[in-house]
Amino acid sequence: MVELIAKSACDGLLPKTIGSLTLSEAAPEAITSVTPFRGQEAAVSEALKAQIGAAWPAPNRMTGRAGARVVFSGRGQAFVLGPRIAPIAGAALSDQTDAWASVELSGTGAADALARLVPIDLRPGVFRQGHCARTLIFHMPGLVMHTGQDRYGLMVFRSMARTLVHDLESAMEAIAARG
């Protein structure tokens, strides 16, 4: 059996610090998509609470804490970002751990840099901590999460990792150039 070495999506690209902003890779231990069958949302929420202590999220919201989050990821779908979870009766689960590039943008002005790429209102009073959105990151569909003060988690399909880093770098440079 050949020994294979796992490479993360942003291997060799990150971390990068430009001005006050830092971009680093933030891949969770596992990414599991959870889609409850019709009418099973409440039961699935209970099962998630029992397994990782976080309930089913409302649209544009996430529950739990760093390392064990449940994040709204589409119509009737949420991602569990954290430990691998056991099968849940009443929901379809799929392992997507290697399918996404996950990065974190942090530092003063992080929202200003993102505002150059993301077409939603990112002001901290509107897009608060614990909020998330399936939206566009420049030309890519992605997932934006407000995880902490001046701290944002971003996910796009893994094949777009290099483009994501490039686009974010451009935005970070533009913010740094303004001084």
Binding site: G74, R75, R134, T135, L136
Partner: peptide
């Protein structure tokens, strides 16, 4: 189609 969003 909400392609760049929730997929609805």
């Amino acid at each position: 189609y909400h392609e760049g969003g929730c997929g609805a």
